[in-house]
Design a protein around this nucleic acid. Structure first.
Lengths: 236, 236
DNA sequence: GTACGTCTGTACGATTCCGAACACAACACG
DNA sequence: CGTGTTGTGTTCGGAATCGTACAGACGTAC
């Protein structure tokens, strides 16, 4: 059913014509947290389209193993952008499942053909590309200028925008890698947010309790990131 | 002359067919450092293509006036990417002239039409888009993880890759905004690089003296950024 | 229930960087 | 040749974060 597809499935795929969708024949897969969908040095053979509830991190890492999240993709988007818009090549980035969920996989070469020939497909994917680039540059500024606590609050809200619940399952160690900070720093920031009742946490779990309070505590990056996502979903 | 255009002019424009080039009718302008070519809240009516020697910074800034450079564009590229690949809208980023030089200006709506209809134009501009996204995510990681001195060394090399000389004219205050750090930090980093003979500096000026030494002192981001630019230029 | 591995809270010194201020140097302009 | 403006070097205290270490809490497996 088409309407169901646009709300619970991937929004980009949901806007493809049924003829194109049949030809692309996406395969649905369920993935668990920390699953690696694309490796940095790999030339991806597939393009992935998360369904609602699934969130994937696009990550860059150093030779020494340090890593930072460049951006996140939910059911509004796809990855990897590079392989869609240009010839296949290693992307240098890693795609890591952050929130469990369903993901549609499409053959990269096949999709690239439709991207080239079908204006509707192209406009949709380029529209997301623009949104993603916008998100990444915002995160670049945020990573440089804002404090851990504010960035943590922002991060939780950004994820919340892409899932159905206030419950998130992840370790603080995982979080420290996403934010690019050391683990004890995350522990302190989590506690700080909890004492003010903004979140609750226990082992492997963080849940949002006060959405508005969290927004107020987060850095100024939250609002534009939320707004641009909302607008993108609306105009899609 | 076609060959002159590809070496001293903009590389992307140089690969357009002469028929398309005539239709686009780019206007050449000379710009000085700190000229603002695109404002964050503005819907750009033009797309800009730097010639060799001109370098433009793509900058994101906060409400409070702090700013960080997201990436740089030389004669290998164009800006703003958003306005080429999607419908016109404010980009949220600022384009600031960093190294004086010539820039070709093309009407955004006109170029967008060719981007839509001409596969050659589209492939060229998307190829750069991929490169730019790669550069931005690398800078995101660098901004989060690396120290001022290493980032300064990297920055000088990145600019060096896009100009003809080892002489650069800019204030340390300007530099501090690009790197997103406070000005005295730049002063200290510049001195540190100078005492080891890697650079020379005086008021409003920095010149590279030891290219290899600077590379060794810079963070690990320099090499991949240099390599991907070189490869892009070669395969263009 | 017990043992083990994983995750988390906390501590401490060391380091980097910020924020602000000030004096001096270089240059531009009259 | 003064004078004002701009850019630079340096200082200081304080804040944020790192690096490392360790102990306790939690959950799982046997």
């Amino acid at each position: 059913m088409a309407t169901a597809k646009t709300t619970t499935g991937n929004l980009l795929l949901g806007r493809f014509t049924s003829r194109v969708l049949r030809a692309l024949a996406p395969r649905e897969e369920d993935h668990a947290i920390t699953d690696v969908l694309i490796r940095p040095d790999e030339t991806p053979g597939s393009i992935f389209f998360p369904h609602f509830g699934a969130v994937v991190s696009i990550i860059r890492s150093t030779e020494s193993g340090a890593m930072v999240e460049a951006g996140v993709v939910g059911n509004e988007g796809m990855f990897n952008v590079h392989t869609v818009i240009t010839k296949p090549a290693p992307t240098g980035a890693e795609a890591l499942v952050q929130i469990d969920g369903r993901v549609s996989r499409v053959d990269a070469a096949l999709l690239h053909n439709y991207f080239r020939d079908d204006e509707r497909v192209r406009d949709l994917l380029l529209s997301f590309t623009s949104l993603f680039l916008h998100q990444v540059t915002q995160n670049l500024l945020c990573n440089r200028l804002h404090a851990i606590e504010q960035r943590l609050a922002k991060w939780l809200l950004i994820i919340r925008d892409r899932i159905a619940t206030d419950e998130m399952h992840m370790t603080q160690d995982f979080l420290s890698h996403m934010l690019g900070v050391h683990r004890p720093g995350v522990s302190i920031a989590v506690s700080a947010l909890e004492v003010d009742g903004l979140i609750k946490h226990s082992r492997n779990r963080i849940s949002i309790r006060d959405h508005a309070g969290l927004l107020a505590r987060s850095c100024e990056c939250s609002a534009p990131l939320h707004a641009s996502l909302k607008q993108f979903r609306a105009t899609l």
